[in-house]
Amino acid sequence: MKSLSLKNLAKTYFDAYKGEHVTAIRDVSLEVPAGEFVSIVGPSGCGKSTILNMVAGFIPHSGGEILVGGTPVKGPGPDRGVVFQSFALFPWKTVLDNVGFGPKMRGVPKAERDAIAREYLALAGLSHAADRYPNELSGGMQQRVGVVRALANEPDVLLMDEPFASVDAQTRMTLQDELSRIWEERRPTVVFITHDVPEAVFLANRVVVLSKGKVLAEVEVPISRPRVWDRLVADDEFKDLSNQVLALVRSA
């Protein structure tokens, strides 16, 4: 696990149709120490996905610095695992091969990477689905595979882009419980993008509220772990924090 730090990050791009420069991210600085879970929330269009795409290396940043364990980011790489809102599983690979993809890229032999994949699948209770194709799984199952695939590559930082936004409410809570449990077991460094405030608070050590390409506020979440919905749903501290963050987002 490594730390992630964003220093005066900025993004402007040229809108050729309008013929003008557009600022998506003005000036964002953020420190995520190794092993911390940070959620970024904000209204749509606030630039939260842009930040994640820059950290992942999918799009270049136009100002400032992105450092993973002190090393500047240049393009996508296996040191940063990404979980996508649309799952982005390879439809032509079985669940096992999807999870084993990262190790395969590192040159791990077939038998060994299958063993790694099976271990991680077991972590998410997916052992029975190893030989299925993504298309044959429900949305919730597919995103479990998406999370496990990123984890199996043992990244320094895990980046999650609204990963549970396209599954039903019931499944979403189960997935949040599971992600919380897995995080407590493995303690990865996580940046979690969402527009769902209770989700952000439930999962994170710290919630960052973003507005118009700038950090509006940071809220610490000292709620004790393990966290499960059964307990937190009636927890006053959780409710207060959620309302506090919600008020910030509304004001944004």
């Binding site: 992942a56 290396g57 999918f58 393009g75 996508p76 790489g77 296996p78 940063r80 695992g81 990404v82 996508f84 649309s86 982005a88 599983l89 390879f90 993809f101 990262g102 890229m105 590192r106 695939r149 990123a150 590559n153």
Partner: peptide, 12 residues
């Protein structure tokens, strides 16, 4: 996103 996913998993 599929190409992004592959790239972030280390695909050359």
């Amino acid at each position: 996103t599929l190409r992004h996913a592959a790239a972030s998993l280390g695909a050359g």
